[in-house]
Simulated assay, not measured.
Amino acid sequence: MGETIKLHEENVLENTKKLQNPLVIKVFGDNIPAYVINSKIKRQWSYLGKFNFLWLGKGWIMSDIDDEEALELVLSNGPWFVKGQIIGMEKWSTLFLPDSLKGLTTPIWIRILSLSLQC
């Protein structure tokens, strides 16, 4: 009541640098424990270098992929799965809302039999 919170500019700048290439991830389907998701994704992405996960709640995970090229590889080299459940992901932005699926993508392959080759 009437109290104010003062932000330290150095901390804000340092945290902003950490949020240059974060990725938000959601595993769809069954409720899979966090340690399993962590283990499975780290194994699949191990060739990209080091990264960590931050559990945001409501099934959302943030990954701190430092390298822009590695981030693009993760976004384009899917689809990714954990225990048979597909992973949706997007680059984090200040507009991210954990209650929304807007912008969430995952590359998928579909097979349509008897479709002409030119199609």
Rank of each mutant, 00 (worst) to 15 (best):
S76H: 09
I112E: 04
K17V: 09
W45A: 03
I41Y: 02
S93N: 15
L113N: 05
T94P: 02
I108L: 02
T4E: 06
Q118K: 04
S46R: 14
L71N: 01
K50C: 05
F96P: 08
V36W: 05
A70N: 13
I86A: 04
A34I: 00
D66I: 06
I61A: 10
Q20K: 15
G88Q: 11
E68R: 08
D66S: 07
V24Y: 01
F28E: 12
D30N: 10
D30V: 03
D99N: 14
P98R: 04
G103C: 02
Q118A: 01
Y47Q: 10
G59W: 02
V24C: 05
S39R: 15
K18F: 00
M1S: 15
S63H: 01
Q118C: 06
L48Y: 04
W60H: 10
K50M: 06
V82D: 10
V12E: 06
W60L: 10
L97V: 02
F51R: 00
K18S: 01
E3W: 14
Q20T: 15
T105I: 07
E10V: 12
L115C: 14
F96N: 08
N38M: 12
W92P: 05
S116D: 09
F81Q: 13
G2T: 13
E9S: 10
V82M: 12
E9F: 06
D66N: 04
A34M: 03
V82C: 14
D99M: 00
V12R: 05
F53M: 14
S63P: 00
I110V: 08
F96E: 09
S63N: 02
L23H: 00
L54Y: 06
P98A: 02
R111G: 04
K50E: 07
G29C: 05
L54I: 07
L115Y: 02
K83G: 06
L7N: 05
L48A: 11
W109D: 05
I41K: 02
E68L: 07
V36F: 12
E10C: 13
E90L: 13
I86C: 08
L48M: 08
A70H: 07
N31G: 03
L104M: 15
M1F: 15
A34D: 14
I112R: 06
N31K: 11
L7M: 12
G29H: 08
M1A: 14
I86W: 03
L54T: 08
G49N: 07
L71E: 09
V36L: 14
K102C: 04
L54A: 01
I87G: 08
E68D: 10
G49L: 07
F81A: 11
L75V: 01
L71F: 00
W92R: 08
V24N: 02
K42E: 04
V27S: 10
L73K: 15
T4R: 11
F51M: 03
G84W: 06
E72H: 14
L95A: 12
Y47S: 13
V74Y: 01
M62C: 11
K26V: 01
H8P: 06
F53G: 13
K50W: 03
S93A: 11
F81N: 11
V24D: 03
